[in-house]
């Protein structure tokens, strides 16, 4: 039987049928692989937290050890921004294992999310327990151009964030400045809050600065509303700040 491949009806039927067959095949594979992909995603996040809070070297630890460290040293906490009503799931890291009765807070990992140059960027910025300085920044998901915007994952660039001053915010409620020229005078409001932008990726750098500032502002409002009292500050008597509570049901061990 000879098929007339020029017949318009055949062209339509062929196009529709081949699309359905190939798409269905890919969907089946995707569904079958989803479990493993989710597990990998969780491990990536745990490694990112480990690195962010310097709880250990994720490259030198087996997956089980990474999971155990994250589960015993961190927990999740929901904070609500009173201004927008948005809740955020902050990860709190402790100086020791949570099973002990009193452990100091090492820091808070604040989720950051916003539109990058190409697609949504998602990650964490970690703030020290006294809420004054940045411990580090990490990005879990981005689709920026490798070598340009993709350099946000470059450890050398991320190291420039460590130690930035975030409290109190500079004028205009800004926390972090990303730009081309470093502050040159001590009067410059950007002093101690400046990260050099990535060469060739001004779009990505500007976008990151924008959503990090917004998310840090929301975190500051939420932390104040929740009464998070920084470590090392005298606490009102008889009142313990939420971070020092022992692990609740919200502990990472899911």
């Amino acid at each position: 039987m000879k098929i007339n491949t020029k017949n318009p009806l055949y062209v339509v039927v062929f196009s529709v049928a081949s699309s359905i067959v190939f798409t269905a095949g890919i969907m089946l594979i995707q569904v079958a692989a989803q479990g493993a992909i989710d597990r990998n995603q969780k491990l990536l996040e745990q490694k990112a937290l480990l690195e962010l809070f310097k709880l250990g070297d994720p490259r030198a630890m087996p997956a089980r050890e990474i999971a155990r460290t994250v589960e015993t040293r961190t927990r999740r906490m929901e904070l609500t921004d009173p201004q927008t009503g948005r809740t955020m799931r902050v990860v709190v890291a402790y100086e020791g294992e949570l099973s002990r009765s009193f452990v100091r807070v090492r820091g808070y990992a604040v989720p950051i999310e916003g539109m990058g140059f190409w697609d949504v960027i998602r990650g964490y910025i970690a703030v020290a327990g006294d809420l004054t300085r940045v411990l580090g920044v990490t990005f879990l998901r981005h689709a920026e151009t490798p070598g340009l915007g993709g350099e946000i994952m470059n450890p050398q660039w991320r190291r420039k964030w460590e130690g930035l001053r975030v409290s109190p915010p500079a004028q205009g409620g800004r926390f972090v400045y990303i730009g081309g020229s470093a502050p040159d005078s001590s009067q410059d409001p950007r002093q101690g809050r400046f990260v050099e932008a990535i060469t060739g990726a001004t779009g990505t750098s500007t976008a990151v600065a924008k959503f990090v500032n917004e998310d840090l502002a929301a975190f500051q409002r939420a932390a104040r509303a929740a009464g998070l009292i920084p470590d090392g500050v005298e606490k009102p008597s008889g009142q313990s700040a939420p971070p020092q509570t022992p692990p609740g049901p919200e502990s990472e061990g899911r």
């Binding site: 491949t5 062209v11 062929f14 196009s15 081949s18 995707q30 692989a33």
Partner: peptide, 25 residues
Amino acid sequence: RLIPQRVRMITEVLIIAVYVIMVDI
């Protein structure tokens, strides 16, 4: 012998995409 001449390139792209998505997964 089945691919119509008129839609041959788009069909080829579809086929390539399927194998590339497999690699990605």
